[in-house]
Design a protein around this nucleic acid. Structure first.
Length: 424
RNA sequence: GGAGAAUUGGCAGAGUGGUCGAAUGCGGCGGUCUUGAAAACCGUUGUACCGCGAGGUACCGGGGGUUCGAAUCCCUCAUUCUCCGCCA
């Protein structure tokens, strides 16, 4: 979330910026400032009374030790009303603070200046389209037919075991998955990201830290018995490694990568673009996360984008890069680039990566701070993450685009990972 | 799952009702000494909030309670360790 101080000091700017996200914050912010004024007043009052109480208690202690029972008991009587007043103020204060926090979590991150206005994904800016794009070709089979033809993925079997959106990968299909995961992890490792294997369930505090809770509660699978959530992305456990941490500025950038399965309920998205691998409840993804100094985060976003782009180039897939518009950039993000690959059989662009700079929005929730060398004061760090990459749609595009009369050709870059160069 | 013990500052560890935001040691930072380094010695060393400032308030695993006063007593939850059970 944004910090209260930042909102106070930049009220008009925040409102103006949030307009780009089609969010009208003026009412919330006015209420927020009013509440904050109350809060400060309240604090002044209670703390004064608490100071009084503390010194009174100290005196009572002294009197007792000196054996002046009568005086001590007299002083005790004074504390009664003071105590009640403190209790009253404390209750008010916690009420005010609860409301402040509720409002703060309802205000999205402000978009970066370069985010174009727009209502939906149709208004995203196409920044780059690779030259190897091949036109739609209706003679090609979509991946769900190829999956059946070569026995690579069994969607019905997944329905039997778990339900729709939980496919079973088989034979070379499974091997291809494993190859892609290893390829992506090795590439991330080579780019300096430290590999971790985090839990794939998280507690409430973690869900809140990265912004999935409270707003996206319905999108996550919830294990009620133990109050845990299945992760929708490795971003959640990986970024939460740094919750309540104060790092040294010299340690930036802190680069982490992880492969995890991801679980999404995708409530409400049935019926549209859900065929085959296009939208699943469980899928695999390699994620990259960077914790960075505020002065360098946009530079770092650029290098993360370049990293993802290099993967698509190595996989020889036609792709394009989009700068998300205000209507499509997520609640917590300041600037997001998407990568899409072209599916020739489906004649459609498929989103395979999303790379975002959250600036200090997540860091504030996480209490992720850093200290400049020699400085005493802490500041909020910036967090960034990106998919590098999500597997299913990559798989779909590889199968569809590389089909030939002889079989499906495996791109050079991953042959050594899967041990075969064609699927027949 | 059962029984017992524990949870204190970056780490180790003292503190069982007042003078405790907390001894001491280690580590970190600054300095003296040294050609330089080490050693030794001296100083310093948590976070957040309120306040122009002086200063004040809160935090000893989380939450609640008792008390004029809680790191210290009580309740509750969580976590860790030991033993037993189960087990990849």
């Amino acid at each position: 979330m944004l910090t209260l101080n930042y909102i106070r000091e930049n009220k008009d700017l925040v409102i103006k910026k949030l307009n780009i996200k089609n969010f009208d914050a003026s009412e919330l912010i006015n209420r927020l400032i009013e509440l904050d004024n109350n809060r400060k007043e309240n604090i002044k009052e209670v703390e004064l009374k608490k100071a009084e109480m503390n010194s009174l208690s100290k005196q009572i202690g002294l009197l007792f030790r000196e054996g002046k029972q009568a005086e001590a008991n007299q002083a005790k009587e004074k504390t009664g009303t003071l105590k009640e007043e403190i209790k009253k103020y404390d209750e008010q204060l916690s009420q005010i603070e609860t409301e402040i926090n509720t409002i703060l979590t309802q205000i999205p991150n402000t978009p970066h200046d370069s985010v174009p206005a727009g209502k939906s994904e149709d208004d995203n800016q196409i920044e780059f389209t690779s030259t190897n794009q091949i036109d739609a070709d209706s003679s090609r089979l979509p991946h769900w037919e190829l999956a059946k033809k070569y026995d690579l993925i069994d969607f019905e079997l997944g329905v039997k075991i778990a339900g729709a959106g939980f496919p079973v990968y088989k034979g070379k299909g499974a091997k291809l998955q494993r190859a892609l995961i290893n390829f992506f992890l090795d590439e991330a490792d080579n780019a300096g990201y430290k590999e971790v294997q985090p839990p794939i369930v998280v507690n409430e505090a973690s869900g809140f830290g990265t912004g999935q809770l409270p707003d996206k509660e319905g999108q996550m699978y919830h294990v009620g018995e133990d109050n845990l959530y299945l992760i929708p992305t490795a971003e959640v456990p990986v970024t939460n490694i740094f919750r309540d941490v104060i790092v040294n500025a010299e340690d930036f950038p802190i680069k982490t990568t992880a492969y995890t399965p991801c679980f999404r309920r995708e409530a409400g998205s049935y019926g549209k673009d859900v065929r085959g691998l296009n939208r699943l409840h469980q899928f695999d993804k390699v994620e990259i996360v960077t914790i960075e100094h505020p002065d360098k985060s946009y530079q770092t976003l650029e290098t993360m984008v370049k990293h993802v782009e290099s993967l698509l180039i190595k996989l020889e897939l036609p792709y394009r890069k989009l700068r998300l518009c205000g209507g499509d950039v997520s609640f917590t993000s300041a600037l997001t680039f998407d990568f899409e690959v072209f599916s020739m059989a489906q004649d459609k662009w498929l989103e395979v990566s999303s790379i975002s700079n959250f600036e200090s929005y997540q860091a504030n929730r996480l209490k992720l701070r850093f200290k400049e060398k020699g400085e005493k004061k802490t500041q909020l760090a910036h967090t960034l993450n990106g998919s590098a990459l999500a597997l299913p749609r990559i798989m779909a595009a590889l199968l569809e685009n590389n089909q030939t009369d002889d079989g499906i050709i495996i791109p050079e870059a991953i042959r050594r990972y899967c041990g075969f160069d064609i699927i027949k």
